[in-house]
Design a protein around this nucleic acid. Sequence first.
DNA 1: CAGCTTATTGAGCAAGCGATAAATAAAAAT
DNA 2: ATTTTTATTTATCGCTTGCTCAATAAGCTG
Lengths: 243, 243
Amino acid sequence: MPRSKDDLSGLRRKAAPMPPPEGMPPCEPGAARRLPKDEREKRIIEGAIQFFAERGFEGQTRELAKRLGITQPLLYRYFPTKDDLIDRVYQDLYVKRWQPVWEEWILDRSQPIDRRMKRFYKDYAASILTYEWMRIFLYSGLAGFDINNRYLTLIRDRVLVKLCGEWRHEFGLPDPTALPIGEAELELAWALHGAIIYLGIRHFIYGLKVPRNFDPLIEADIDVFLAGLPGKLAALTREMAAE
Amino acid sequence: MPRSKDDLSGLRRKAAPMPPPEGMPPCEPGAARRLPKDEREKRIIEGAIQFFAERGFEGQTRELAKRLGITQPLLYRYFPTKDDLIDRVYQDLYVKRWQPVWEEWILDRSQPIDRRMKRFYKDYAASILTYEWMRIFLYSGLAGFDINNRYLTLIRDRVLVKLCGEWRHEFGLPDPTALPIGEAELELAWALHGAIIYLGIRHFIYGLKVPRNFDPLIEADIDVFLAGLPGKLAALTREMAAE
DNA sequence: CAGCTTATTGAGCAAGCGATAAATAAAAAT
DNA sequence: ATTTTTATTTATCGCTTGCTCAATAAGCTG
């Protein structure tokens, strides 16, 4: 079978790390020098998020400084080591973006289940399906940092397990207190979660063209998922109850 | 609201890049020196795949050589530059793993649609949901290489678009020649695809514990997806036909 | 203006990087 | 056994990297 043109032969690399979406000029063109301490620190962190998202943690401090319009040794006045700067990037990026109200939305039974799920996932996607969040999260995952494990454990315990409980209630299946949420069940929740996250991966990691507005896609995914869920869920709970 | 223990405060990094699954000893303990040219080249490529999967392309040639039980300059006897070695890694990892028969499986209408999808995705997952494939693919995506874009374009044109056509046929909807596959429709295919890929991301990138056998999970995902699909698909084609 | 504080810079070190060239030694050829 | 070939190593170059420290200059206080 002859190969057509769109195959993978002749693989070559491209030295173009995906540029950030908004071409914000390197932060300061004729940067006003001698800023107050707090202001400078803030700018460094913001610039570092942008920079590390683009280049990864192996990005060099000299180039980061160049983008910030400052010299490299100044970075070390504000952060004793590069690792300390990276830690601050994590703080600003992950810890601050978690919304405890999400858990309440999911459990709010005054709303139908699809509305709750759509509300949560649209807001969640708006929070984390961004250039900086997605790329830094993946860079840190590949580097083997434990933040990813911790963050996803949070997602599992605070979101997915609760979703499973609400589905049980919605479809008239045994309460989790009577029959604990099983692994296969939880994997269904991970599947929907992965489908939504993969939107961001396609766009921000692989640079693929993706519909600009994620919301209708998320709603469609949830519709399909919920329409197909009860059959499988009933089968799974039957299996588990039988043991 | 007081924070519980499993939150994200006190983020710290961990200097442990996720180790490969099978602790294959560094390739050669008391390595028989002076290998024939082909054999040595083969070992270098295999070792490089393992090494770059773990450390990324910024992994140093000296450490790669150390794992291979050879000295660093010897690498440059076989590959003129580090980039040339990386290109060979791509060839071995991506080009060789594409199975043209997959496209035939999907279009084989002598089998029911769920059987076809499960057969393809289980085989596809067995091929690419591996430590080396997933990690190198993500490293190269983050680095901005064009392989990812090319590979996923292949997936879209050779797999997902065809799946959409088969769904149309399955549910008695207009043929793609009469009404072309729409964007929203294709996004549903990406959703299922993403749900399955995300299994590998969770495990090999983030180091999360995931059920060992992916097959039953993939089957469940497809069952839920197919059960929920016809309603949404009918609505989408109605919308498109109305324009 | 003088004097003090401190944000910022210029110069540079030690270690690590990809890559090179000549020297060595193991296998093959004569 | 001697020569030829070549897989492999030793030593090193030029450059980059994270990081340091003394010098500079901008702003505040009197």
